[in-house]
């Protein structure tokens, strides 16, 4: 079987200070090739200040079966939100 090398997921940062966002994937055999391939595939129009690449197989992800027990328990903990609290009338900068 022929091979098209490994899959790497690509994350790009559009401006300094911005979060890295998933852009897509490329194939490559090593980290340098993955970075360069990501550069040629996903930054052709500039608009990039940083690149991450990571082997696709190294990413762990939740499934919809995980979702109820992972995420629902936090839905009712509204005391984590600032809007939960009642502040005295007239208090500033809080």
């Amino acid at each position: 079987m022929d091979n098209q090398l490994n899959i790497w997921e690509v994350f790009t940062q559009s401006k300094p200070g911005q979060p890295y966002r998933h852009a897509g994937s490329v194939h490559a055999s090593d980290r340098q090739m993955a970075l360069q391939n990501a550069r040629d595939s996903y930054t052709r129009r500039g608009e990039t200040s940083g690149l991450w690449v990571v082997r696709a197989e190294d990413i762990a992800a939740t499934t919809i079966e995980d979702n109820p027990s992972f995420f629902d328990p936090n839905d009712d903990k509204i005391y984590r939100l600032p809007s939960f609290y009642t502040m005295p009338e007239g208090a500033k900068n809080i």
Partner: peptide, 17 residues
Amino acid sequence: GAWVREAAQKAALNGQK
């Protein structure tokens, strides 16, 4: 291109440049 892809894969097993 097969020999190039094969070489790249083999080289990766030999560590990083």
